[in-house]
Design a binder for these strands. Structure first.
Lengths: 123, 123
DNA sequence: AGAAAATCGCAAGTCATTCTCGGAACTATT
DNA sequence: AATAGTTCCGAGAATGACTTGCGATTTTCT
């Protein structure tokens, strides 16, 4: 499962992972997929990306990065982006919280949805 | 409903909004709450904040801001933060997408969860 | 091998959200 | 003010995304 996510740029849903793995493991259950994805997330080996509409997506990209979420097709793209140094530190001080992660999500229409001139988002 | 959200710093769930409003409108149904929240969101008057665990929270804060999401208690705090100018524009150019919004979420433990020395997140 | 522990498949359960539908409330028209 | 059309609402069923219990299977240890 880890290997699968490590080799795709997609950000598949649990159902999609299940589907794909079933080609090799016909008896694999969806519950098991969820269980193992959760373990990988807790180990920090993969990342769960929750989206406003639609199910959680899983991301095997190990390098720190952010996301673009398409409101047309629901697709997710990785975004490389250098944030100002000490951003989290600043928040930590100002709000007295133990901030450990920042996540930056951009929303809009992806390239192909823009080209298709899709003005009405699907959802 | 709009008024309620405008006057609270909380980021209540739909169920919480329902509960609160029921004091005045005993027959108010949850479906109606969802319907109207959705309308307010589409009108841009309030914001929906989807969280990794737990239901969507609603935010009546009209000024542009970001969020801190506590992994201990699930609470949400508003974060005022000036992002580098042209961040969205840069993403738009580099990835050729129609990016319209950025959302920055910080994760960690809020002040009181930190004080309570809560090392094991609830969920 | 044999016992204990970790995983798993399956099915049922939970929870948030959406949908359907009949009826109530509001509007415009006469 | 009665009528017709439209919009909104409550109630509850339906859907979808997970989650969990449990007995069975596999793996690990000794």
């Amino acid at each position: 499962m880890f290997e699968l996510l490590g080799t795709t740029r997609e950000h598949p849903t649990a159902a999609r992972v299940h589907e794909t793995l079933q080609e090799e493991l016909p008896r694999l259950s969806l519950g098991t997929v969820y269980r193992n994805l959760e373990i990988l997330v807790s180990e920090g080996k993969i990342e769960a990306v929750s989206t406003p509409h639609g199910p959680t997506r899983y991301d095997g990209n190990p390098s720190p990065h952010h996301h673009f979420i398409c409101e047309g097709c629901g697709g997710i793209e990785d975004i490389e982006l250098r944030l100002p140094a000490g951003l989290t530190e600043r928040v930590r001080r100002k709000y007295r919280v133990t901030a450990t992660r920042v996540r930056v999500d951009f929303y809009g229409l992806c390239r192909s949805c823009t080209d298709r001139n899709l003005t009405q988002p699907i959802r």
